[in-house]
Design a protein around this nucleic acid. Structure first.
Length: 111
DNA sequence: CACATGACTGACT
DNA sequence: AAGTCAGCCATGT
């Protein structure tokens, strides 16, 4: 893909189904290299600069912790959005994380 | 070109 | 089970 690494990350994050979440590692692995997880997180920093609204709140670390909540306009915004989609969050951690986990490789097989 | 940074992950203690 | 250390890759200075 000629697109930038970040562009691919944004593209994947954008197609995350509502009410689902994924991890940096899964996205990175979908892009080809699992080790690029850090770049995924780094790319998310620019997500707020993108034109379309990037559901960055649906991206968490592999433990299901809202590690990036601090980068939101309001640190509570991330948890609020997740709860609004039916995802329970307690102490900055997603409950039933594996149940809400969505793998980008599935690309809609979650139906 | 080399060094430093970062919303991570895996392995070890 | 929980905390600590190091590795990895793209971008910026």
């Amino acid at each position: 893909m000629d697109k930038d690494f970040y562009a691919r990350v944004f593209d994947v994050v954008r197609l995350i189904p509502k009410g689902k979440v994924t991890t940096y590692g899964h996205i990175a692995r979908c892009l080809g290299s699992r080790r690029s997880a850090r770049l995924v997180g780094y790319a998310m920093n620019l997500s707020h600069t993108q034109d379309p609204t990037i559901p960055a709140h649906r991206v968490v670390n592999r433990k299901g912790l809202l590690t990036g909540k601090m980068h939101f306009k309001d640190i509570d915004q991330m948890q609020r959005l997740l709860e609004k989609e039916g995802i329970e969050v307690k102490n900055d951690q997603i409950l039933r994380f594996q149940d809400h986990l969505w793998d980008p490789a599935v690309l809609g097989d979650d139906l």
